[in-house]
């Protein structure tokens, strides 16, 4: 048995190598280029290039620029789809009432595990928030920050019990309200530049960040925050913050719902 497995492994490796070599040698599969691709060059040269102010995004982070500026409406729809998925998940369990009395015994793991979980729990939101507010400067952003934040309730559910989380107010309604607030904030930020443009008798597009040649309106990239000149990249910073709120609440809600015991939920369905 062992010999057969080793033989199989060697055969697969040799076949893969021969196949890869043949494909590259015959030119069917090109080798990866050493330089930047043309599209990448365009983005790298334009996202933080104030000389090309009509196509710049005001942010040195190319991914965030593309996500929230160049294809901003696409990301808004993406967030909406995620919101609808969570709405769907809530619709499935709409009869379930998430009360402290019905969410498990609340015993949790041992004291050792609980103590360390409390220490880690305090640090996770800080890291998540820093990812969110750095989203327009370094890799990261709202969605990643929200995903990082959602680890905190997950840890609490695993080590300290769902009951504690529900007792502390991480209920279904409140998390959904926070999620909706995040989405509404994204909607407001999407139309804030057009509204400002209308007030100045100008025009602007929905989800516009920086000024364009034919739509000269936009939030300024550098903002004076209490005497310190800060690069907020126009709307990108606020979009990242809203997305952080939306995703962290949404993912926390999903984890809470997944961890909820099915006992009373089943009873409710039977009585219907």
């Amino acid at each position: 048995m062992e010999k057969r497995l080793i033989c199989l492994g060697v055969c697969i490796t040799v076949t893969a190598f021969i196949l890869a070599f043949a494909l590259i040698y015959t030119g069917i599969v090109p080798l990866a280029p050493t330089g930047n691709r043309p599209l990448a060059t365009i983005f790298l040269e334009s996202t933080f290039n104030a000389e090309k102010w009509w196509i710049w995004a005001g942010s040195p982070e190319v991914v965030t620029s593309i996500l929230w500026d160049y294809r901003g409406i696409d990301t808004v729809y993406e967030t909406t789809v995620f919101f609808l998925a969570i709405i769907g998940a809530i619709t499935v369990v709409r009869t379930m009432k998430l009360l402290p009395e019905t969410s498990g015994k609340g015993r949790g793991l041992t004291v050792i595990a609980k103590t360390i979980t409390k220490i880690t729990f305090a640090t996770i939101p800080i890291i998540a928030f820093s990812i969110a507010v750095h989203g327009h400067l370094t890799p990261g952003g709202g969605f990643q920050a929200g995903s990082a934040f959602a680890v905190a309730p997950l840890l609490v559910i695993a080590a300290l019990s769902l009951r504690l989380l529900v007792e502390r107010g991480w209920g279904k309604e409140r998390l959904l309200a926070l999620r909706t607030t995040g989405l509404i904030l994204i909607g407001i930020i999407a139309i804030i530049v057009p509204i400002l443009a209308i007030l100045r008798h100008s025009i602007a597009y929905i989800m516009q960040n920086q000024a364009k040649l034919w739509a000269p309106a936009g939030l300024s990239a550098v903002v004076d925050l209490l005497g310190v000149k800060s690069l907020l990249s126009g709307t990108l910073f606020w979009l990242n913050l809203s997305e952080f709120l939306a995703v962290s609440a949404g993912l926390s809600l999903v984890f809470v719902l997944l961890a909820a015991p099915t006992k009373n939920f089943d009873k409710e369905v039977k009585t219907q």
Partner: peptide, 16 residues
């Protein structure tokens, strides 16, 4: 620091 804190807890919980 966090590896030092969490690794023993992980093995403790698994063993339990």
């Amino acid at each position: 620091l966090f590896v030092l804190l969490t690794a023993p807890v992980g093995s403790h919980v698994l063993a339990r």
